[in-house]
Design a protein around this nucleic acid. Sequence first.
DNA 1: TTGTACGCGTTATCAG
DNA 2: CTGATAACGCGTACAA
Lengths: 340, 340
Amino acid sequence: MSKKTTIYDIAKALDITAATVSRALNNNPRISADTKKLVLDTAEKLNYKRNGLAAALKSGKSNNVGVILPFINRNFFSTVIRGIEEELIPKGYHIIICQTHEDEKKEMETVQNLLNAQVDGILISLSRQTDNIEHFTQVLKKNVPLIFFDRKMDIRGASSVTLDDYQGAYNATQHLIEQGCTKIAHMTVDPSLLIYKNRYEGYRNALLDNELEVYPEFTVNLKSEIEAGREAARKLMDLENPPDAIFSATDLGALGAIQHLKSINVKIPEDFCVVGFSNEPFTQFMELPISSVDQSPLLMGKTAAKVFLEQMDSKDVKIQKSMVLTPTLMIRQSSTKLKS
Amino acid sequence: MSKKTTIYDIAKALDITAATVSRALNNNPRISADTKKLVLDTAEKLNYKRNGLAAALKSGKSNNVGVILPFINRNFFSTVIRGIEEELIPKGYHIIICQTHEDEKKEMETVQNLLNAQVDGILISLSRQTDNIEHFTQVLKKNVPLIFFDRKMDIRGASSVTLDDYQGAYNATQHLIEQGCTKIAHMTVDPSLLIYKNRYEGYRNALLDNELEVYPEFTVNLKSEIEAGREAARKLMDLENPPDAIFSATDLGALGAIQHLKSINVKIPEDFCVVGFSNEPFTQFMELPISSVDQSPLLMGKTAAKVFLEQMDSKDVKIQKSMVLTPTLMIRQSSTKLKS
DNA sequence: TTGTACGCGTTATCAG
DNA sequence: CTGATAACGCGTACAA
């Protein structure tokens, strides 16, 4: 089981001091090429492995960053993570991933845990809108970079990388209008979350800009689940004056709606168009591929990571950056009434 | 920005020694209830936060465990992670997640990184079968618990939690036979990976046990992608004597096959049955729901975590545990020829 | 029950 | 260019 070899061991072997070894190992200029090579060689020989913890304790830099998000098992989020990894791992960082399951209390605990673990930064997608920002101010007080992605909160000192949800929704709605739809319904989730509020606004303003009426009964709340989508569609179609299109703020909602519509023999896209949001993979390979708004999750992750790196590079100067990515509408069969 | 408060600060405030504070904070029995309460109170008052790094360095326990897997953005794996989290986070552990993207070199690097970061254990799902086990023996030499899940490797000292892939495949094939299918093809991925080998064996033995012939040309390799599934199905159906059913080792493969079959107007399930493997969510909500073998990912994650905890609890005694979970066949429309 | 003293492995600041 | 020495913050024998 042989005790781990430390820089002290290799110092003894070379009859020099640990300080010199440390310098050799860390590309410190104040060392001769000869001894450096000597150190490196015997380090190899003794199978030396640097103890990250000790270095972290001393330098105050753990090389860990925390990523907090609602769920990991959703393509959007897991792809964001991938983006973050692609930027940060090559720089020697480790990613600690924590799921909140949309639980605010868990979010606060998690932030505390990560701070205690001395992470170098926190990238977070909010679990839900909350008045409580105490845990975030604590992060900032400790001078730990805090970057929101997708679901943000406006806090002095915190950066953010988000999608232009308003624009995405506007484009989707505009597209439906161009397909000839005039009675467009909207399925949203939790309007207290900024992203859903913005999607609603985009929907609403697209209608207004086209001089279409905004019927309150055409906007329904639902959870992001298929059953809820089915149920919501049922309600909409039971209206006296039912819609002829749905712009859903989630893909699963759109899928549920389509399932219900098919069950009552509504023809899509001929008589009814549907657009979802998130561009989850399944939207492509359904029998009836579903139009959806892509959120560039990979880019979002990479961008958030880069913002973090910037903050690290200039920790003295306080930077606060808000970046907004442009969404892309993926037009598929579910909303292709006109063949141009 | 106020420097972080340490146990020294709170010791000074109470005019006692840091050692006492430490004891109070760690439920050490050798302390009076009075001073303990006093310490806890002023710790609260001074907003003390324990420095995990320092504790880790001293105790040799980082409270971090590494989870290494091929991809995070696949329902199976992300759900395993969720299972691991549910067991380990309440115990105060942090989860460091690393993706290998099926790259063996990256896997080896990752293992090294995690060891240098002094993780308390490593849970891993192999990227691909490899002859090189050096990185694993290093883990074991350092007496760090190593637990394989799903994709394992037999190494002395390492534990594993896997699915009974053989049984899953056997059941799926048996089910197809019971539906009246006699010419059953199999789509596999990388036969060098144990899981796929076992699935093949299960398929094969189910045929043999039912006195059906095993045609070599009925087994095709593919990557786990839709296009590959389509392509493979095309090849199979172009045979002189084409199959009347497919048992695919992946769900995406099954989906691709179904897409091709539909495109050439083969009726499913009347004239052709398909079963996949993994029970990915999309299999349920396709227009034609796809039968699939469920792998109990949540349970697998929880079990792997529990095995890890056992190892930690008795680090002196070497435990090596191999657990095998039983798969469940989810029968859906794609293979329901007979209505019983 | 509490204090003393030291070490975990590394890095940084001095001198020399 | 290199050596000695002091931290980083905490835990724990040992002694009192």
